[in-house]
Design a protein around this nucleic acid. Structure first.
Lengths: 144, 144
DNA sequence: GTATAAGATGTATTTATTATACACCTATAA
DNA sequence: TTATAGGTGTATAATAAATACATCTTATAC
């Protein structure tokens, strides 16, 4: 039970931008810092852009910045925007309605409550909250 | 974000046994009912046995029964016993401690709280609770 | 005491999802 | 007009999960 690295990277991107001195950075810089696939990050960043979390600018001197201050970026929103489903059990998926315990099985309701409890906690925090313990980021590229 | 079918099947097995008229059934009967892989179920059932949820008996006339009444079987316990990890984000995995935001990143703590909230809900219910809406099970094998 | 029916075990294969790589496109500033 | 930035689509690789298969062990019935 784990979020995808796609979602994980999205959160790291936001944290990195928020902590970078100028508030402006590039995909390459982030990929080098975390030592992760630049190609994968491109897609993460693009989606963060289309969901309104970051502002991307192409061309020379371009890069990334937050669209809103960290206090206004909710972690639950980010996770919901990046993770592609929350079908906690099979029967949540509209395409998989063949379990013979349907429709009266109490599991579905229980897992719905559990999933909501999970997301409620994420909804209770902003980007600013998860940055609290981090003072500065050492921008030297990662030595593998 | 979904539990594995391995865990899903485990829960269904317990529900099926609890609702079967004699309280005794076989792997083949369960696999036929849910129209799922018998081979996979064998492993699920074996683990349910080794974790103390079901009593398995080999040989002719053997099969499965619950080791405890449904009121004494906690859903959170079952999920914890079947799901093989709850590394909500990468840094929960002791083998993956290379994220450069460690150790002061607030995400870890936040996801720990979210994961606990999720499991707390599952811990609040027993097998008896999730069976409440189910009156009887039609034991006729599934027509695919 | 042997045939049958049940679960147990280990390995191999298939499938699905996720992550990564690659090639090329578009935009923009110096 | 070139260098640098993100955007897009497709292909491949890696991983995890599910399934299949073969064989073993145990227990009961006859």
């Amino acid at each position: 039970m784990q979020i995808t690295s796609y979602t994980d990277y999205a959160l790291r991107v936001l944290m990195f931008i928020a902590k970078s001195p100028t508030g402006q950075t590039t995909i390459t810089e982030i990929a080098d810092f975390f030592n992760i696939s630049r190609n994968h990050l491109v897609k993460v960043v693009h989606q963060l852009g289309s969901k309104g979390f970051v502002k991307t600018t192409r061309g020379k001197g371009g890069g990334l910045a937050l669209q809103r201050p960290p206090e206004m970026i909710n972690i639950g929103d980010v996770v919901r925007s990046m993770e592609n489903h929350f079908n906690w059990v099979e029967c949540f998926d509209p395409a998989q309605q063949h379990c013979r315990l349907l429709p009266n099985c109490g599991l579905k309701h229980l897992f719905a409550r559990a999933g909501n409890a999970y997301l409620d906690v994420l909804d209770s925090a902003t980007l600013a909250d998860v940055l609290l313990g981090i003072t500065t980021i050492d921008l030297n590229p990662q030595i593998p």
